[in-house]
Simulated scan of single mutants.
Amino acid sequence: MMRPKIAFAMAADKTKYVFDAAALAQLAAHCEIVQEAPLDSFSDPQARAVLAEIDILVTGWGCPRISAEVVKAAPRLKLIAHAAGTVKYMLDPAVYAAGIAVTHAADANAVPVAEYTLAAIIFANKRMFEMRDRYRADPARVSSYALTNEPIGNYHRTVGLVGASRIGRKVAKFLQGFDFTVLLSDPYVQAGDPILAQVELVDIDTVMARSDVVSMHAPSLPTTRAMIGARELGLMRDGATFINTARGALVDEAALIAELQSGRIHAVIDVTEPEIPEVGSPLYSLPNVFLTPHVAGAIGTERLRLGQLVVEEIERFIAGVPLEFAVEPALLERLA
């Protein structure tokens, strides 16, 4: 039996470390790698020649959209293995119409996001970002020590999760090792779901009103756009922290900024809408905001998990074993 032919399509400057030498060697043991250098376009003659002979296409961040024309140019293509998280925006319906299987590494990318969220929760409850600023301004530690006598810390605190996504579920699991009460709001969670052993299922208003920290883990859908607005933010306790590592579109940013400018709540924000806030946005300078540039997901060597997951999925596919992380068309619409 001939070994399947494989190629890569991704932006090299965004995918360093995804496939190291060991991962490539593991792939080469099962596949013929047509071209190790990733394609960054599907339109030139060389790319079309590669597409014409491959059975498996490994994609990643920066992959061009896989259009109906690309599918037509790849008549042998049987599997698209996405070595990153979100895959739905790069797939034309022609992919599924052609019977091409799709898998992705979102589960691997969820690990560092959940780790980031856990760190943010712990630091938020201890008011570490404010503690840092007070110490810088007052090396004598008078104001820092004053903060330690406030009702802060991580003992008997309430953490609210919005969305039982793969990231939300990993966060819930991490939180089991702490003295937290964990609330969850997700309309899709049904009786018998294993996560109910770890959380208390409540509505969104209860999450916002009862939690010391609220963390967003819902997908970006038409129905979830701006799901957190002025009313929801107004329900939060004084001194509570709002964390968003999901999608900026989930939040009415103007309402969030207004609430933050009041100084009543704090925020840890990794994602915004637009992707980069406009120059002069208060999010860059508000003292009660910890803003990061969409880096909660896999960065640096954390990307190795993405490549390893994809290699293992390709091995399953070649062996005729069901894919563990297959992306079916019905699932695609509910992905982040």
Rank of each mutant, 00 (worst) to 15 (best):
11 A>E: 15
16 K>L: 15
17 Y>C: 09
20 D>H: 07
37 A>I: 04
40 D>M: 15
41 S>A: 15
41 S>T: 15
43 S>G: 06
49 A>L: 06
51 L>W: 14
54 I>V: 14
55 D>Y: 13
55 D>R: 12
59 T>Y: 07
65 R>G: 01
69 E>R: 13
70 V>D: 04
79 L>K: 01
79 L>V: 03
79 L>N: 02
87 V>F: 05
88 K>Q: 09
93 P>G: 07
97 A>P: 00
97 A>E: 15
99 G>F: 11
100 I>S: 02
101 A>I: 06
109 N>E: 05
110 A>W: 11
114 A>S: 10
116 Y>G: 02
118 L>M: 13
119 A>L: 14
125 N>D: 09
125 N>H: 12
127 R>P: 00
130 E>T: 06
137 A>L: 13
138 D>P: 01
138 D>G: 08
142 V>W: 09
145 Y>E: 13
147 L>H: 04
148 T>K: 12
151 P>F: 12
152 I>N: 04
153 G>W: 12
153 G>Y: 15
154 N>L: 13
155 Y>V: 14
165 S>Y: 10
169 R>V: 06
171 V>K: 05
171 V>H: 03
173 K>L: 08
174 F>K: 08
174 F>A: 06
178 F>H: 12
180 F>W: 11
181 T>C: 05
181 T>M: 07
181 T>R: 15
182 V>E: 02
186 D>Q: 09
196 L>T: 06
196 L>M: 11
199 V>Y: 08
200 E>W: 00
201 L>T: 08
201 L>Q: 14
206 T>H: 08
207 V>C: 01
208 M>P: 00
209 A>S: 15
210 R>Q: 15
210 R>F: 00
213 V>P: 01
213 V>Y: 12
215 S>M: 12
216 M>A: 02
219 P>G: 10
221 L>A: 07
221 L>Y: 01
223 T>R: 15
223 T>H: 12
224 T>V: 04
227 M>E: 03
227 M>H: 09
231 R>D: 09
232 E>V: 03
232 E>W: 10
235 L>G: 01
237 R>I: 03
241 T>Q: 03
242 F>P: 03
244 N>A: 04
245 T>Y: 12
245 T>L: 12
246 A>V: 10
247 R>F: 09
247 R>Y: 11
255 A>R: 12
259 E>P: 03
261 Q>H: 00
261 Q>K: 11
262 S>P: 00
262 S>Q: 14
265 I>Q: 07
267 A>K: 09
271 V>I: 06
271 V>S: 04
272 T>D: 01
273 E>P: 00
275 E>L: 06
277 P>V: 03
280 G>P: 01
281 S>H: 07
298 A>L: 05
298 A>G: 04
299 I>F: 09
299 I>H: 04
299 I>E: 11
300 G>Q: 09
301 T>P: 01
302 E>T: 01
304 L>T: 12
308 Q>V: 06
309 L>V: 13
311 V>I: 11
313 E>K: 11
314 I>Y: 13
315 E>R: 14
324 E>A: 14
336 A>K: 05
